[in-house]
Amino acid sequence: MIFEVFRQETESDYHEHVGNVHAPDEEMARLFAQVMHARRKPANSLWVVPKEEISEVDADDPGVAMGGTTQKAYRWATNYSTGRMAEEIEASEAEQVEAEARRRSTRSEGGDD
């Protein structure tokens, strides 16, 4: 049996795929995975997963839509950082900053209010 191995370096990292091990069962796979994939690299945890238990979506398979086929660029946040809309937002932000600064200076001049 083939088991895919995912290694997590520290507690705050994601488990990343690092390779696989051949083993007759899960117990032996866990044993081998330690030597094969954690002996020389820091590991906080290993996921050892039977390969056949992994469900795969292949982009080349018929009927698979990874992101679709029509133009949906409007969904990207970066689209809002240029053009007329972006200029308006920027101007509005600047106005708010200015207003805030004005309020603050009025207050400090006003003494112990």
């Binding site: 051949h22 083993a23 081998f32 030597v35 002996r39």
Partner: peptide
């Protein structure tokens, strides 16, 4: 007996 068994005993 296998690559994995081999590495384990070498380890």
């Amino acid at each position: 007996p296998t690559l994995e068994g081999d590495l384990a005993v070498a380890n």
